[in-house]
């Protein structure tokens, strides 16, 4: 564990708490893509199934359980508790176009051709692109509540912070994880436009609005 990975994980945790806070205080999931949230459930379950056969640390297991539980809880909030506040007509990104290529990538790029490793690789690729329905929705509406943008910023910062972690691990442990690094760079790249608007507008006290 190094500081970059730890801060990345904290940022990931923070993003979930910000999202829960947004849903609970506004009693609404307006502006949040159900499809993106459902993809995260798939990502976490696919990757963290190793809870049953691999022990890394208490920290690692606790975080995995938290991410599985919180992502399922968010789906419950969106689909049942605050269902009327979710507008499916603007959440239309076709997730098949993400799932199928990720499955193919996982079958080609994996560290061992067995069920657990292919599933792991699939979850890594899927996580990289799972934010697309959310970004697509943002693009369509052209604006977002501040709290939603803080959620996205914390979520984007999480994988961005993993990049210095991988550089650090390369020099200190000689560890290279080409699949995670490639997907992580793609994932961070998808946020660049968002980060630009977030830093130049939201953090300057303006509303998050995309140019028409």
């Amino acid at each position: 564990m190094n500081i970059f990975r730890f801060l990345g994980d904290l940022s990931h945790l923070a993003s979930i708490f910000i999202l829960l806070h947004k849903i609970q205080t506004t009693r609404s999931c307006r502006g949040i893509s159900f499809r993106t949230q459902a993809l995260y459930v798939v990502v976490f379950i696919a990757r963290y199934l190793d809870l049953f056969f691999r022990y890394v640390s208490l920290y690692n297991s606790a975080m995995k359980l938290f991410f599985i539980a919180s992502s399922c809880y968010i789906l419950y909030l969106m689909k049942i508790r605050y269902r009327p506040t979710h507008d499916p007509s603007i959440d239309t990104f076709r997730v098949e176009y993400l799932l199928a290529p990720c499955l193919i990538l996982a079958l080609i790029f994996n560290y061992k051709f067995n069920f657990a490793e292919v599933l792991w690789s699939f979850s890594i690729w899927l996580e990289a692109v799972a934010i697309l329905p959310q970004l697509f929705m943002l693009q369509r509406t052209g604006e977002a509540e501040n709290i939603t943008t803080h959620y996205l910023a914390a979520l984007g910062a999480y994988r961005a912070l993993y990049i210095p972690n991988w550089i650090y691990r390369y020099f200190t442990e000689g560890l290279v994880d080409p699949i995670a690094v490639t997907a992580g760079i793609v994932q961070t790249g998808l946020y660049l436009d968002f980060f630009y608007v977030y830093f130049t507008k939201v953090l300057q006290g303006q509303k998050f609005e995309l140019p028409a």
């Binding site: 990931h12 190793d50 691999r54 890394v56 975080m63 560290y111 061992k112 972690n165 995670a180």
Partner: peptide, 10 residues
Amino acid sequence: RHPSSTHDEL
């Protein structure tokens, strides 16, 4: 080192 057996990241 090869990462295949570790997967110690979240």
